[in-house]
Amino acid sequence: MPRDIPAQASIIQFGTSRFLLGHVAAFVSASLAAGHSDQHILVVQTSSREEGKRKARALATQRTYPLHLRGRRDGRDIDERWTIDSVADGLIADEDWATLERHFVEHATHVVSNTGDAGYETSNDSCLAAVPSSFPGKLTKLLKARHAAGGAGLTLLPCELVSNNAQRLRELVVGLARRDYAGDTAFIDWLEAECRWANTLVDRIVSAALEPVGAVAEPYALWAIEDQPGLTLPCRHPDVMRVDDLTPYAMRKLHLLNLSHTFLVHRWRQAGLETQLAFVREAMAEPALFRALEQVIDSEVIPALATRLERHTLERYRDEVFERFSNPYLDHRLSDIAQNHAMKCQRRIQPVIDLAESAGIVTPSLIDVMRASEDYQ
């Protein structure tokens, strides 16, 4: 039996990850408190993971949860506890489909998602199933129901760490619609012309979950959203930015922040410090590791990236990254960063080497990382 969800829960958030709880939901909560917006969030658990289901059930009953911000930002120590009250309810898609579909059709205005590494996988899925197994399949079925009811197009703001995430999601949804709703050209036209698919880039380290629901996060945060005509955002916040082009933000994050993580892991392993150091903050406090990181960023990475981006923005972001990595309260495990190391080297480091080579810049330390990564294939 479908239950009633508050009509103001017009932001449909697919995913119960601690990241979304400490990032998007926190922005929406602050926007509500400041009187900048009036939209709340309906959280939807899309996978079969029991941990996610447990969090969705908790959000359906308690409606608020704690967010603990700890660290430094702009040279200032921050240790703050916030109560996040932007979530109006929680649903489990596999168990509450009728409720989700009705609310999506009648009240949704925005879709936000962060469905993990396999979130865009659609193998062997069908939108014609009672409840599709994949996130894109579920989304396509919901959009079809909304269109059939005469609903307006939505704004989709995916937060998955995928290049051009909204355009990729749009391709998947339109492809599923063409296959499973063949002949419904009006629906395809509606998806492509009436829905707004906005690429986004997110940046915040949310290091731990709180029980039964909540998160511990660093003070730094960014939600950059690529602007387009007619785009409306679900909230207003200093860390939510409309930008004309996501490329500079994506390059800085991937090739400064993410590259620095991967370089630290390489030197941590190379020095045989796996049993002595556990966290990024400990690596930053180890003089030899920090000096190596500082040297490679200043002499190899920034000169290479400066062939495409403004040097002063790179240097400012470098300083922010080092401040964030040194956060004494953040238990960011080097062993977690070390997972899929070879693949991360290819994405984070090899493009910088290629940029440098085309500009005649030598990158011996980066090349050393790539050579060593072959041992982790």
Rank of each mutant, 00 (worst) to 15 (best):
M1K: 01
R3V: 15
A7V: 14
A9E: 09
Q13C: 12
Q13K: 01
F14K: 07
L21W: 00
L21A: 12
A25K: 01
V28S: 06
S29N: 03
A30G: 05
G35L: 13
H36V: 03
H40S: 15
T46D: 05
E51Y: 05
E51T: 14
A56K: 05
R57E: 03
R57F: 01
A58H: 10
L59S: 06
L59M: 14
A60H: 07
T61M: 08
T64Q: 05
T64H: 07
P66V: 00
H68F: 06
L69S: 13
R70L: 10
R70S: 10
D74I: 05
I78L: 11
D79I: 11
R81G: 01
V87E: 08
L91K: 02
E95G: 08
D96H: 11
W97D: 10
A98H: 10
E101T: 09
F104A: 05
H110N: 12
S113A: 10
D117V: 14
S123G: 12
C127K: 03
C127G: 10
A130W: 02
A130K: 12
S133P: 00
F135C: 02
L139E: 04
T140A: 15
L142G: 05
A145E: 07
G151D: 07
A152G: 13
G153N: 10
L157H: 02
P158V: 01
V162K: 13
V162L: 14
R170Y: 02
R170I: 09
V174K: 02
R178I: 09
A186Y: 00
E192W: 01
E192M: 08
C195W: 10
R196D: 00
A198T: 08
N199F: 04
T200Q: 08
D203K: 11
R204Y: 00
A209L: 06
A209W: 05
E211K: 08
A215M: 05
V216D: 03
A221S: 15
I225C: 07
L231N: 13
P234L: 07
D239W: 09
M241P: 00
D244P: 03
D245H: 13
L246T: 06
T247Q: 13
A250G: 08
M251F: 03
Q270N: 09
L273I: 09
Q276E: 07
F279M: 11
V280S: 06
A285I: 08
P287Q: 07
L289I: 12
V296P: 01
I297G: 03
I297F: 09
I297L: 15
V301Y: 09
A306H: 03
R308V: 11
Y317P: 06
Y317G: 06
P328N: 01
L330F: 00
D336G: 07
D336W: 09
I337L: 08
I337Q: 11
N340I: 08
H341E: 13
A342Y: 02
K344E: 14
K344A: 14
Q350M: 13
Q350R: 14
D354Y: 00
D354S: 12
S358F: 00
A359G: 03
G360R: 03
I361K: 11
I361N: 04
S365E: 02
S365G: 09
R371I: 12
A372R: 11
S373M: 13
D375R: 15
Y376C: 09
